[in-house]
């Protein structure tokens, strides 16, 4: 069974973001890069399915800059077999990324049975690549998946929708599943896993090798800027009971008369 996992390398969630000097993206010099948190669920799910299905292979794919290969090494340290990196700038649009992933999959010469991704990457939060890739490969897809069963070519996938309700989908492989938190508990990479990952094959190719050109960019993002800061608010001391009653009453009055939201 050929399992592909598409991952992204993103700034750590605690990163303080600043636009770069020409505002074409953000300052990336001193950023700590991590494997996109939602992609960890995709990698884990791939490894669980591989463990239950003999003769399976897990290939991790990433489109992005070469600054470091943290995300791919993490995925291989967790247990993925090999990796492909398509070198590209970090501020690419979803269409170009999906097309590069398709090109990279084609180049492996392997026919995908299952493609797993995170539901979205926490840098641009677009939530688009899995569905675009599904359209390009003419495959069914289910996004925001919080539960999944796989048995001999049949997938049951639980998709979280508004209000925490769940749609239960059935589909046959090949297909694409975009994973959300709650699907599983990703394993930590063990020390032997990390050592082994260093020897696992990592293929690099250019965007052109993957069949992507400038005309594949459908959306351009520019003029990166920080959101306006709010002026300082009012703060009430309410550690004593008498103060608390006064503070609560004042805040409720302000919400009604000043902010006019109640």
């Amino acid at each position: 069974m050929n399992i592909f996992v598409c991952v992204k390398q993103v700034p750590d969630t605690e990163t303080k973001v600043t636009p770069n000097s020409d505002q074409s993206f953000i300052e990336t010099q001193s950023i700590k890069w991590i494997l996109n948190p939602y992609d960890e669920f995709a990698v884990e799910q791939a490894l669980l399915i591989k463990a239950a299905n003999s003769e399976s292979n897990v290939t991790v794919l990433r489109v992005g800059s070469v600054k470091d290969t943290e995300a791919l090494r993490t995925a291989m340290a967790m247990g993925a077999d090999d990796a492909v990196l398509v070198e590209a700038e970090d501020n690419l649009d979803s269409y170009s990324i999906a097309k590069a992933l398709k090109g990279a999959i084609d180049k492996t010469g392997k026919k995908p049975d299952l493609i797993l991704t995170g539901k979205q990457a926490i840098d641009d939060d677009c939530l688009q690549v899995p569905q675009i890739l599904a359209q390009m490969l003419n495959l069914p897809s289910v996004s925001v998946v919080v539960g999944m069963d796989y048995e001999s070519g049949k997938i049951t996938a639980k998709r979280e929708i508004d209000g925490g309700s769940i749609e239960v989908y059935e589909l046959n492989t090949p297909g694409i599943i975009a994973c959300n938190k709650g699907l599983n508990t990703p394993r930590y990479a063990s020390l032997p896993g990390i050592m082994k990952a260093k020897k696992k094959p990592l293929t690099q190719m250019s965007l052109a090798d993957a069949g992507v050109s400038d005309s594949d960019r459908k959306v351009k993002y520019f003029d990166f800027h920080l959101p306006p800061e709010k002026p300082a608010g009012k703060k009430f001391e309410a550690t004593e009971k008498a103060d608390a009653e006064k503070a609560v009453s004042e805040v409720v009055q302000l919400l009604r008369n000043e902010a006019k939201v109640i």
């Binding site: 608010g233 009012k234 703060k235 009430f236 009971k241 608390a244 503070a247 609560v248 805040v251």
Partner: peptide, 26 residues
């Protein structure tokens, strides 16, 4: 508190029920 328009420094288990009562009143 740096993002809050209105900040209340206190024990939430005391403040929240008070807020509920105060909202009910208005």
């Amino acid at each position: 508190f740096s993002k809050a328009d209105y900040g209340i420094v206190g024990d939430l288990f005391e403040i929240v029920p008070m807020l509920t009562e105060e909202f009910k009143k208005i």
